[in-house]
Design a protein around this nucleic acid. Structure first.
Length: 424
RNA sequence: GGAGGGGUGGCAGAGUGGUCGAAUGCACUGGUCUUGAAAACCAGCGUGUCGAGAGGCACCCAGGGUUCGAAUCCCUGCCCCUCCGCCA
C-alpha cells in the first residue's frame, strides 16, 4: 500500500509515477472520497467526544443520587446523530480502502519504460552457452528417454501441469534443494525457516496477492478459508506482520524451501510442454527485512546470492531489470535472473529479485524501532528466488546432457548424491 | 470427536457496566547516590489517527449486538490450555 498521506498531498505525482507501470490512477474519486472521509471523521469524533463527556456526567449524577432522566433524553438525539455520521464514515472508508489496497507500488526512478518483457533491459551476463556437437534434446525427451520424468502419469493422478520424477532424477531435484539451502545458510548468512504452506487471506493481503489476484491462487474448499501458497514469500514475509522488531535484529535474513502452487489462470497454451510452468513446483526463497536506507544495496546483494547458485552449477545466465510494464504489483524494482536453456535457444526466468520498499510492510504493519527516534517505523522488504528448483533441474538436464541422453551431475551436487557422476 | 477453562500493555498479572488506556510486579530508559558496579531511591516507559499546540478520537483476540456509557453483559468466529477418545 502506498502512503495515504502521499496520495493526499501530491496525487498528480503519484499518478504520473504509476503510469510507468501502465496503471491509470483516477485521482478525482479519491480526492472526493478523501474530503468526505475527513469531514465525516471530524464530525463523528466530535460527537463521540460530546457523548463521552455527557456519559461521564450521567455517571456522576447517578452516583450523587440525582435524577438522570432529563440527561438521558438529551443524549439520545446525540446518539442518533453519532450513529448516522459513523455509518457514513465507515461506508466512505470502505470505498477508499478498496481503492487504496488496489493501487500498485511506485516503480523506482531507474526502472526502464516499457510495456512487455521485450522491453526489459539486460544488465549483465555470466557464462558461455555450451556448443553441442550432437542433436540436443529438451528436458522432456531426456526425461522420457531415461524414464525418470513422467508427465502422463501425473496427468492421470491429478491433471495437466504436474510432473512425476523417479529415481536419480528425483534425487537430483532433492540435492538441488539441499545445495541451495546449504549455500545460503552457510555462505550467505541466512537463517533457514520452515513455514505453513497454506495461509489465510490476511497474509496474502500483506504481501499483495490479494485482493487483486485471487484467480492466480488455489483456494481450499474446506471449512477454513485457506489458500495454498504461490511462493514462500507469503508466509515468510508475514512472520513480521503486526510486529515491531528491535533494530539489532536487522537485517533479518531468512531462507525457506517450500512448494509453490499457482493456478496459472490466463496462461493457457503458454509453456504447455514440459516442466517449465507447473501448478506445483519447489522453490528456495530468500527474504530480507532491512532498514529503509539499506534496501537498495541489499537488493544488489540478494541477487548476487541467487547468482552464486547458478555460478556454482556452472549454468550460463543473464540478469535483466524489469521494465515498468512487466513489474509486479508490489515491487518497486525487480531483477530477473534468466538461465540458458539450450532447447529453447534462449534465457528463461529462474529467479526474480525485488525490492518492495515499505509497500508490503505498510500493508502488514511490519515495523522496527528506530533507536534515533525511538519510534516504530516501517521496514523494507526484499526477496528473491534462490532459485526456482524445478527450472534449475531443467537447466541442469539440458545444459549437462550427453550424446547418449545421460546427464552429467554437476560437481557441487555429487556429494549430495552419494558421489553419483551421471544420471541415465 | 466429547467435556471443561481461558484470550488484558515487551513479559507476568489485577480489573462490582460509569474519570480504566487500564492497578501492581518484572524488564527497559534517564537521573540521584557510589572511586566504579550492584542495591536503594526518583522519574519516564503501548499503538494508530486528527491537531500548530493544548488536547481530541480509536484500540484490552476479531466481528457484530445491548446500553446514555462496555476491558467488564450477549452472539458469532478464531486462537490457546486441561481431561477423555482417536491418530502420523
Amino acid at each position: 500500500m502506498l502512503d495515504p498521506k502521499a496520495i493526499r498531498t501530491d496525487p498528480a505525482a503519484i499518478a504520473l509515477a504509476l503510469r510507468k507501470k501502465g496503471f491509470v490512477l483516477d485521482i478525482a474519486p479519491i480526492e472526493a472520497l478523501e474530503s468526505q472521509r475527513k469531514m465525516l471523521q471530524v464530525k463523528a469524533e466530535s460527537f463521540q467526544a460530546e457523548r463521552n463527556t455527557r456519559s461521564k456526567s450521567i455517571g456522576q449524577a447517578k452516583a450523587a443520587g440525582e435524577d438522570i432522566a432529563p440527561l438521558l433524553a438529551e443524549v439520545n438525539q446525540l446518539k442518533i446523530e453519532l450513529e448516522d455520521a459513523e455509518a457514513r464514515r465507515s461506508e466512505i472508508q470502505a470505498q477508499l480502502d478498496k481503492i487504496l489496497w488496489g493501487i500498485p507500488n511506485l516503480p523506482d526512478e531507474e526502472v526502464p519504460a516499457g510495456d512487455t518483457e521485450d522491453d526489459n533491459v539486460e544488465v549483465c551476463r555470466w557464462g558461455e552457452p555450451r556448443d553441442f556437437d550432437f542433436e540436443i534434446k529438451d528436458h522432456v525427451d531426456l526425461g522420457a528417454g531415461s524414464g525418470l520424468l513422467d508427465f502422463e502419469v501425473a496427468t492421470k493422478i491429478t491433471g495437466s501441469r504436474f510432473a512425476v520424477m523417479h529415481g536419480q532424477l528425483a534425487l537430483m531435484h532433492r540435492a538441488l534443494i539441499q545445495f541451495m539451502l546449504n549455500t545460503h545458510t552457510q555462505q550467505h548468512g541466512y537463517e533457514e525457516v520452515y513455514v505453513p504452506f497454506m495461509v489465510n487471506a490476511d497474509s496474502l493481503r500483506g504481501t499483495g496477492q490479494l485482493p487483486k489476484f485471487e484467480e492466480d491462487l488455489f483456494k481450499l474448499d474446506g471449512e477454513q478459508p485457506f489458500y495454498l501458497i504461490p511462493t514462500a514469500e507469503v508466509p515468510v514475509t508475514n512472520l513480521l506482520r503486526d510486529e515491531i522488531v528491535a533494530s539489532d535484529t536487522l537485517p533479518l535474513k531468512l531462507v525457506c524451501h517450500s512448494p509453490c502452487f499457482r493456478s496459472e489462470a490466463g496462461s493457457y497454451g503458454r509453456d504447455t510442454r514440459g516442466m517449465i510452468r507447473q501448478h506445483q513446483f519447489e522453490k528456495v526463497e530468500l527474504v530480507q527485512f532491512v532498514r529503509p536506507e539499506q534496501s537498495e544495496a541489499v537488493l544488489e546483494e540478494l541477487r548476487e546470492h541467487a547468482g552464486t547458485i547458478l555460478q556454482k552449477l556452472n549454468l550460463p545466465y543473464r540478469t535483466v531489470i524489469l521494465c515498468g510494464g512487466d513489474l509486479g504489483f508490489s515491487a518497486a524494482r525487480t531483477y530477473d535472473m534468466e538461465v540458458w536453456l539450450p532447447s529453447q535457444n534462449k534465457y528463461r526466468e529462474i529467479s526474480s529479485c525485488s525490492n518492495f520498499r515499505d509497500f508490503q510492510a505498510r500493508r502488514m504493519k511490519a515495523r522496527w524501532r528506530n533507536p534515533d527516534t525511538n519510534k516504530p517505523e516501517l521496514l523494507h522488504t526484499i526477496n528473491g528466488s534462490g532459485l526456482a528448483v524445478g527450472r534449475t533441474l531443467i537447466a541442469v538436464m539440458e545444459n549437462y546432457q550427453q550424446a547418449d541422453g545421460s546427464i552429467v551431475v554437476p560437481d557441487v551436487l555429487r556429494p549430495l548424491m552419494g558421489g553419483l557422476e551421471s544420471v541415465a
